[in-house]
Amino acid sequence: MQRTDFDGILSIAGGTYEHLSISGVCNCSGNLAAQIVDIDGILNCDKNLETGKFDCDGIANIKGNVRADLIDVDGYMNIGRKSRSAKLEASEIRCRGIITCLGTGEINADLIDAEGYINATEIVGEKVIIKSQTSILMKWLANKWSKVDTIEATTIELSEVTAKVVNGHDITVGENCVIDKLDCSGRLIIHPTATIKEITGDHIRITT
């Protein structure tokens, strides 16, 4: 697989690559496609990104849609703009850094496993795990904690998450979660420090 390294500061019009590695600053004005994207520097992309594996240890600002098999974020990844809908779609998303996807977009993945922070309008999928760690720096960077308007998935496990709506089959609400409305159709576990304003659905409550 041919590897293309961007080390300095440069602007590109987009294109297709096999293995794209960005250590410097890359400003991309068009659509970007690559089998692998490694970011240790900064990527600013005005359009869409399609890739197999997306590994972000630096900063990625993508204004369009992102479609990938695997997304691994240890740095910071921002998708869309407040005024524009953009989607983040992947089979698997792992986040130990920060992901923001605001506006009217959504994050859709079979598995979303976040130990870092996610600020998004909507997160949907098969299994959503958001267990934000309590590092002071990360909390400050991510505006204190993970915030999501709507989370919908078959299995949901949360801690340190603020959400307006959480709908799922099996739901575990962990420490310090604040949820306005929760609908559960399977097993429901709630930590004593969590706050949920309204609970609906035909579920079995399990006490720990």
Binding site: N108, V124, E126, E152, A153, T154, H169
Partner: peptide
Amino acid sequence: SYGQLYRWKR
């Protein structure tokens, strides 16, 4: 399931 619905959408 929710997962199937959203996978098929994706």
